[in-house]
């Protein structure tokens, strides 16, 4: 486990670690829970519609951040030192004002991110979380057997590459910076953005290769 997870345990002992719902979040939960209880709608049907639409949204803001890091060494440096400020400089801020940490994938280390609550997801950068991201099995199995979970996503991590699992908290959210695919050295940031998927920024997959977007 990474330092991120240890931090989470430290936070367990302070009162700020309890959950908080925004007013809008509480209102939507109120309406949905009442309508579900009375049988006017089914949670599963609502989730299905969300799933359908969330895949259309695309993590464009995050892709912008990653492509900029790939093409501008100065920005990459800033992102490593102070991801919160670097990301905010592009106009992507969240209302909660949480701390962002960028973790960079390399030949040595592959990073992936887990959290049980969608409220811990950096949606201002990544759009909406996929429904599996909130599922307890994804989180618990990622912690026990990250390589196995990654394999299910079709992502095979070489034996000599370490896998670090980061647990997002209400205070700290992670953005995975995937490795830039080979053969894209002369690409513009705009072209590169097409290679950067949401899952590559959660760390469940790699960035797409040039062949995959042809």
């Amino acid at each position: 486990m990474s330092g991120g997870h240890k931090n989470n345990h430290r936070h367990d002992h302070d009162h700020g670690d309890h959950s908080h719902l925004s007013d809008m979040d509480a209102r939507i939960r109120a309406l949905e829970s009442l309508l579900v209880e009375k049988g006017y709608i089914e949670s599963a049907a609502v989730d299905e519609i969300v799933e359908l639409y969330e895949t259309k949204i695309g993590p464009r803001n995050g892709a912008h951040v990653v492509a900029k890091a790939w093409t501008e060494p100065e920005f990459e440096k800033w992102l490593r030192e102070d991801a919160t400020a670097a990301i905010h400089s592009l106009g992507y801020t969240s209302r909660q004002g949480e701390h962002m940490v960028a973790v960079f994938n390399s030949e040595d280390t592959h990073h992936m991110v887990v959290c049980t609550l969608c409220s811990c997801y950096p949606w201002s950068v990544l759009g909406l979380p996929p429904t599996w991201y909130k599922s307890p099995p994804y989180r618990s199995r990622s912690v026990i057997d990250p390589r196995g979970v990654l394999k299910e996503f079709g992502t095979v991590i070489p034996e000599n590459t370490a896998v670090e699992v980061h647990d997002s908290t209400a205070e700290t959210r992670y953005l995975v910076i995937p490795q830039q695919p080979a053969g894209t050295e002369n690409w513009t940031a705009e072209q590169l953005q097409k290679l950067i998927t949401r899952n590559s920024m959660i760390g469940t997959s790699f960035a797409l290769t040039p062949e995959q977007v042809k």
């Binding site: 925004s22 309406l31 519609i49 639409y53």
Partner: peptide, 10 residues
């Protein structure tokens, strides 16, 4: 934000 998708989907 996620709640917007929830409102839309409901």
């Amino acid at each position: 934000e996620p709640w917007e998708a929830q409102a839309f989907a409901m």
